[in-house]
Design a protein around this nucleic acid. Structure first.
Lengths: 349, 349
DNA sequence: CTGTTAGCGCTTTCAC
DNA sequence: GTGAAAGCGCTAACAG
């Protein structure tokens, strides 16, 4: 392993100073005579020079990398989000450090800390077990945060929100417009604000349209989700459907808190020989990639995951470069994606 | 934004030297008297000291971060892989820089270069458009590579292989054992070595069991996949199935080059009212998470994505820490995951 | 325009 | 055990 070539070597060989070499090699707009510039470039190429960014970073105190903290990249929603983030980061010369928190508060804490130690000045985070003290302190010291979904209470940071409540409302209203009056809701525990909002949207729509809410059609898992469980949402969809199907009267449509859960619902319905959407309609939430791949293709509410990632990243980088000086709060809007899992019920008065 | 606290500040306040502070704060095993050590720790806490790793990195020339280059994190196979990598990296004190290459050779090249500039000494890479010159050069300068799937020809790097050929063989043999004799193959273009191997496995099994190979049942996309296309594999599965179903004689089973393609196949079969597995059986390859969620659950070949990620990362980190000195080549074995998309055909002689 | 020089924050000889 | 001092590779005043 031979010694690294540094700007010092180049300066020597080109008969100039490290300052000048630095000026041309770092694309500074500092004026350097054309001849000299070209000579430096030539020597750099000859020597096969590769800059050591650590040197620059130490000096400029800017690591040109951001962090992303999400529960798990294995969740397709976060995968798209991260892709959006990374695409933007890349195009703007940044790298992204990926951190899977597994929803573990200790891990999350450790991540933001070590990221900051590595001079990462911007972090995009979904699910922060708001360790207010640490976060506040780091923000104080120059950390910039863009958060998803949950408000990081009272902290100086930007947010990208999604209108879950309206999403829930739109989904159920859509069902009502298709003639459904018996609409069930199946969900994982309402431990997350997003799911709670979706649930409220469900109730809002029913209320507003004067449709009776039947509590036995609301199946929400009681047990808290364990990180270790593979495909928790899917399996929960199955379980909740089993419970629902035990009831005397069955609904004509099921609205699910997310697509994964909907897949579980569809799976159990199929297992029990119930045809979708002829006998029971199913509606999801999220519009992950696979929603179009299941049979029948799932009608669902679109959450613009990839776009959210891009926005979050642009917002963060703009903040880092002082293009944006104030905290920004963005509320993204839901959209219905109509496919084939919902039937039309004729008014049979 | 107040000034950063450095070991210098601590040294001053604790009446000692930066050397000693460094020794205790960096967990060096260098002996420091208990009293002094505790005092330093105390002062560090008081001052709310956060180490600046860039300083250390410049000195030690070790960034404690690895890079991962994959086509797209949006592909569930890579998502699991990356999760495995990140879990290990995290547990061993490393961070992971995620790079989505979109199979773009230029981007890939740019990534390995900028990663190296950031003093990333280890990279796990899937899909490298073997820019031999650059890679060789960087390896020469201390880069360590662990590659997936494709051999990085003649380069000094470790590899994690998966026995695609045997996987293809096992899948088709499984089908044969279930009584199938008319077995189709549907695939994206064979531009990647992995898919080529799977295809060979398909032919091997048919040959070896004396089953006739009917070329019209082999539907392989001709057109090269575009990066921009969403869900290319899925849609290709649909297209190829359409073509297949135009044939005079239909197969009783379809073996797909991967699960995503299989979903497309299942989708089109459903659209045309063909029941799975009663009329046509479908077999996938990969065993991504969603294989168990579709209807019917997909019988497929397991590729141990998460485990591969863990192995690759452990291997890389062992190499970086000189625990492993030689290049390692690991060949992972396929396994059948039996679900409900394959029927048994009774011998009707 | 160009070069000298002083660090960025940390680790690590080397001397005491 | 401890501290002084020399950098790691780079940038940015500042002086010329």
């Amino acid at each position: 392993m031979k010694k690294h070539i540094t700007i010092y070597d180049i300066a020597k060989k080109a008969n100039t100073s490290t300052a000048t070499v630095s000026r041309v090699l770092s694309n500074s707009d500092y004026p350097v005579k054309k001849d000299l510039r070209e000579k430096i470039l030539k020597v750099a190429k000859e020597l096969n020079y590769i800059p050591n960014m650590i040197g620059r970073q130490l000096k400029t105190n800017n690591s040109m990398t951001i962090g992303v903290i999400i529960p798990s990249i294995t969740n397709p929603f976060y995968a798209s989000l991260v892709l959006g983030i990374e695409d933007i980061a890349q195009s703007r010369g940044y790298h992204v450090l990926l951190c899977n928190s597994h929803r573990n508060p200790e891990l999350e804490k450790k991540y933001v800390k070590t990221l900051f130690e590595k001079q990462v000045k911007g972090v995009i985070v979904s699910s922060i077990s708001s360790n207010q003290r640490l976060l506040g302190e780091l923000i104080e010291k120059g950390l910039n945060l863009v958060a998803f979904d949950q408000t990081v209470e009272g902290l100086n940071s930007s947010q990208i929100h999604f209108d879950y409540r309206k999403g829930g409302f739109m989904a159920v209203e859509y069902l009502i417009n298709k003639g459904h009056r018996k609409i069930a809701f199946i969900s994982s525990p309402l431990s997350r604000p997003s799911r709670r909002s979706t649930y409220h949207g469900y109730r809002d729509a029913l209320d507003q349209h004067g449709v009776q809410i039947k509590e036995e059609w609301i199946q929400i898992a009681a047990r808290e989700e364990e990180d270790s469980e593979k495909n928790y949402e899917f399996h929960n969809g199955i379980e909740m459907t089993k419970k629902l199907l035990e009831k005397q009267e069955l609904p004509t449509a099921i609205f699910c808190c997310n697509d994964m859960t909907a897949f579980g619902v569809m799976n159990e319905l199929a297992t029990q020989g119930i045809r979708i959407p002829d006998q029971i309609s199913v509606m999801g939430f999220d519009n992950i990639e696979f929603a179009e791949m299941v049979t029948p293709p799932l009608t669902t509410i679109q959450q613009p995951d990839y776009e959210m990632g891009r926005m979050a990243c642009n917002l963060l980088l703009d903040t880092l470069s002082r293009k944006v000086k104030e905290n920004v709060n963005i509320m993204l809007q839901p959209k219905i994606v109509e496919r084939k899992s919902v039937s039309i019920i004729e008014e049979s008065l």
